[in-house]
Amino acid sequence: TPVREALLRLQGEGLVSREKGWVVESTDAASIDHVFESRVAIEGYATHVAALRATPADIRELRGLAEEMDGFEAMGRAQLNLLNRRFHERIVGLSGNPFFVEMHERTQFHYWNMRLPVLFTREQAVVANEEHKRIVDALEARDPDAAERHARAHVETTHRIVRDALDG
């Protein structure tokens, strides 16, 4: 029963379908665009709200994550992905809105489920982390509009990198 319920939930989210048994759905370009459109909306506004609610300790934690990501060349891809995921999850969590957290988890699930074979170049990784730092600066300045603008730009940058890698 628990497995059947899990499969039905995955079917409801469009990740599997039922034909002559259960089949994992393939990922198409439109799905990638939909995930990133969702991330822009959710992370953008969650960052806006986080700018109003983050404490100095929260800002220090985020700045520490960004500084740790500066050392990306000395760490494995899995470590960098973990730090990046923690950074984004923490900001969404700072919004204090459980619906944002739930929606963000869903977009992240779909994103990682796509198993996108994209490796950022050194330059792209540097730019991405500079964007992280701009987000933290806006949070620290308690500027919700700038925080949202930087968060949206960051997700859009990642979207372009992924699309270019898959199209090229």
Rank of each mutant, 00 (worst) to 15 (best):
F36S: 09
D167Y: 09
N97R: 04
R86H: 10
R4C: 09
A147L: 00
V126S: 06
T27C: 14
R90A: 09
D167I: 11
R39K: 10
I91W: 12
L65T: 08
K20E: 10
D143M: 01
R86P: 08
L94K: 05
A128D: 00
P144M: 02
A66D: 06
E37M: 06
P98F: 04
H34V: 08
N97I: 00
A125I: 14
E13A: 12
E68N: 15
V24M: 06
P98E: 01
G21Q: 09
A46D: 00
V118Q: 00
A29V: 08
E89T: 12
G93Y: 03
E105L: 13
Q108I: 04
T157N: 05
S26G: 07
E73Q: 11
H34K: 11
E73R: 12
D167L: 08
F99D: 13
E68A: 15
E5M: 07
L15W: 14
P98Y: 01
V136F: 04
A50I: 09
F100C: 05
T107E: 02
N113M: 14
S17K: 13
L8G: 02
Q11S: 09
R134T: 10
A125K: 15
N113E: 14
Q108C: 05
E19S: 03
T55Y: 10
N84T: 09
M103P: 01
A41G: 08
H88V: 14
R115N: 06
D70M: 08
K20Y: 14
F100L: 03
D164L: 12
P56L: 05
E89H: 08
D145F: 10
S17W: 13
A6Y: 09
W22S: 07
A165V: 01
V92S: 00
E37A: 05
L116K: 05
D164P: 15
R160M: 11
E140T: 00
R106Q: 10
D70R: 09
R53N: 13
D143P: 02
A138Y: 12
L119R: 03
R86D: 10
P98G: 03
F72P: 08
F99T: 11
V92W: 04
G64T: 00
F87Q: 04
E148K: 13
M75G: 14
H48P: 07
V49I: 06
D137C: 10
R122L: 07
H132R: 04
A147H: 00
E131D: 11
D70S: 15
L119P: 00
T107G: 03
H110V: 12
E130F: 03
G64C: 00
G96P: 02
M103Q: 10
F72E: 11
L15Q: 11
E5S: 11
D137Q: 09
R86W: 07
L15E: 10
M114Y: 13
A151K: 01
N113W: 15
G71I: 08
V16G: 06
D167F: 07
T47N: 00
L83Q: 04
A51F: 06
L10N: 02
A41Y: 14
R163L: 04
R63E: 15
L8Q: 15
D143K: 04
R106I: 10
L65E: 03
E140H: 07
D58R: 02
N81I: 08
L15V: 08
A50N: 04
A153Q: 03
T47G: 01
G96Q: 03
H34F: 02
V16S: 01
T107D: 04
A141G: 00
A50P: 03
E67R: 09
H104E: 05
E19I: 04
A30G: 02
H132A: 01
R63N: 15
R122T: 03
V23E: 11
